[in-house]
Simulated assay, not measured.
Amino acid sequence: MKCQNAITRTAVVLGLCGLLVGGCSKKGGEQEAAPNSQIVAHVGDQVITAQEFANELRLLNIPLDKQKDHETVKKVLTEMVTRKYLLEQALTAKLDREPNVLLDILRSREQVLAAAFISRSVSKKLSAISRADIDKYIADNPLRFAGRKLMTVDQITFPFSANTQSMIESIKAASSLDEVDQKLTALGVPHGRSTSALNSSEIPQELLVRMDAQKPDDIFFARSGPNGMFLKIRSAEPRPLEGDAAVNMARQLMQNDLVKAEASMTSVSAGLEARYEGVYSNIMNSKTGDGQNN
């Protein structure tokens, strides 16, 4: 019975994926029927429309003054043509009928729609922010604006993972980057050492406060994308951010905060709606660390 249910669920998922791909194929046909004035290029049975090209420029963040630049147009269209060619080859090979490919397409659709929903929600909240709200944000975050600093730092960067997380606490007690370097080398963790410039507007608030209260020999740890970093400040000089530049930076930082808050609230709401089955119910409803060996 359980096996039959699993097969049924798989069939439903693949059926949904089939509908999704069918919808995409239909849209491809509609593009074929588009007026020639709206078609930028033909690639086999595929076409690139003016709307697709404009959207590609948007996704690549190409500035308006560069969108008619011949070299830029050539580069973007070459990449799109290659993608359409590979699409045609994949369809000819019937890869769109493979279960894993269908599931990947469904996942991509979910990610795009989820990002669009959060973006729309954030845009509505951002449009409601007044100049008074921005001025208050600037006043409440002096280290990012009037008290902004440009810092020269020595840093050691390494790939952050579950394996490296466990050893970070012991390395945090190091009194110098030389000691950090030695410990990472002894542990066999690949890393690189360099000098860079940071301004305090780009540093997470929690780390910024700690840095502002630093002692001369303090070593700081921070995350940067997939990497971990140990930092030591070599020098700092005042670089206040004021006027329109401060307003623009404040709006960007407030938008970032809204995205994080929206993602956090969405995660909570999703968790409340979720109902897990079988062993996954035990895993998801247990406290962290419980049942790991069960």
Rank of each mutant, 00 (worst) to 15 (best):
C3T: 10
V12A: 12
V12Y: 12
V13Y: 02
L14W: 09
G15K: 11
G22F: 03
N36H: 11
D45W: 10
Q51P: 00
F53E: 13
L60S: 07
I62S: 01
P63V: 03
D65T: 05
K66Y: 04
D69S: 05
E71M: 08
V73S: 00
K75E: 11
V76A: 10
M80H: 01
R83W: 08
L91M: 10
A93P: 04
K94C: 02
N100G: 06
L103S: 14
D104N: 11
L113Y: 04
A115M: 10
A116C: 00
D133S: 05
I134F: 00
D135F: 02
D140N: 08
P142S: 03
K149E: 15
V153Q: 05
S161N: 01
S161P: 01
A174E: 14
T185Y: 13
G192R: 07
R193Y: 10
T195W: 01
T195D: 06
S200D: 07
E202Y: 09
L208N: 15
F221T: 03
G228L: 05
M229E: 11
F230Q: 11
L231W: 07
P238R: 06
D244Y: 01
D244N: 12
V247E: 12
V247F: 02
V247D: 07
Q252P: 00
D257G: 05
V259M: 06
A261F: 05
E262F: 06
S264W: 06
V268C: 04
L272Q: 13
E273K: 15
Y276P: 13
N282Y: 09
K287F: 07
G289P: 03
